[in-house]
Design a protein around this nucleic acid. Structure first.
Lengths: 122, 122
DNA sequence: CAGTATCCAGCTTGATACTG
DNA sequence: CAGTATCAAGCTGGATACTG
C-alpha cells in the first residue's frame, strides 16, 4: 500500500500532486476539535458515546462537538451508530479510513512533542 | 528520539497531553498554503527564493504567500535569509524543526493518497 | 524582487436557549 | 441523552494598488 513517493522525485507535476493531496488531507483534519476527537477515539480502542466524548474533549461545547463529528463523518473518518433506545444512545467510532490515520497521527504526536521540547529546553 | 507514546496507555491525562500536542502541531500547519509550501521546500532539497515559491505554489497570491511564510517562520518551521543585493534576494529554507516534519508529512501524503483512491475506486 | 497597505466577504467559533 | 436553532465576534482568505 506504500505509495513510493519520495522527495527526490524530479517531476514538478508529481510534487504538486503530493502537495495538493496533503493540503486536502489537512483540510479534513482542520477544525479546532477534530484531532482531539480522533486522538480520543484512538485511545479508546472502541466506540465512544456522545456524552463520553463531551467529557473527554476538554473545553468543547455541544454545538461544536456535534459540528465536528458531523464533518468527520461526512469525510469518512468516523462512523455514527444510533441505537433505538430510550434514552437515546449514539456511538462514534473510527472508520477504516480513520484507523489508517494512525501512522500520521503518531508521527504528528512525535513531532509535536519534539517541538514542545525545543520550545522549553533548547 | 522516539517518544514511546502508544494508544494503549490507560492514563487519561497522558492521552490529553497527546491530544493537545497534536492539536497545537496541526494549528501550526493550518493555513491554506502552508503544507504546499512545506512540500515544495522538501522537494526542492534546498532554499527557494520568494519568486520561485510564488511560481511553485499554484494559485497563491503575494499577500497570502508572505503571510503564510511569516507564520511558518514565527513557528520555527522555516528560515528566512536576506541577501543584501540589488535587486533583493530572499531565500526560504526548512529549519531543523521543519526537516523533522518529514515523517509526518510522508505519513500524511500516504494517507491522502489512500483517501483519494478510496474516493474513486471504492 | 520582495514586499506593504487597505478593504471586504465569508467562514469559524462560541454563548445561550430550546427539544424529541 | 443527543441533539437543533439563533446570533454575534473575530479570524481567514483574497483582490487590488502601491513601494524601497
Amino acid at each position: 500500500m506504500r505509495t513510493e513517493q519520495d522527495w527526490n522525485c524530479q517531476d514538478p507535476e508529481q510534487r504538486k500532486v503530493w502537495a495538493a493531496a496533503t493540503s486536502e488531507a489537512l483540510r479534513v483534519l482542520e477544525g479546532k476539535w477534530k484531532t482531539v476527537i480522533i486522538c480520543q477515539l484512538f485511545a479508546a480502542h472502541g466506540p465512544l458515546r456522545f456524552s463520553e466524548l463531551e467529557r473527554r474533549v476538554d473545553g468543547v461545547n455541544q454545538k461544536m462537538l456535534i459540528q465536528q463529528l458531523k464533518q468527520l463523518e461526512k469525510d469518512g473518518i468516523i462512523m455514527r451508530t444510533v441505537y433505538p433506545e430510550v434514552p437515546p444512545r449514539v456511538e462514534y467510532s473510527l472508520s477504516s479510513l480513520g484507523v489508517a490515520l494512525g501512522p500520521a497521527m503518531e508521527a504528528l504526536i512525535d513531532w509535536a512533542l519534539l517541538r514542545r521540547a525545543g520550545m522549553n529546553g533548547d
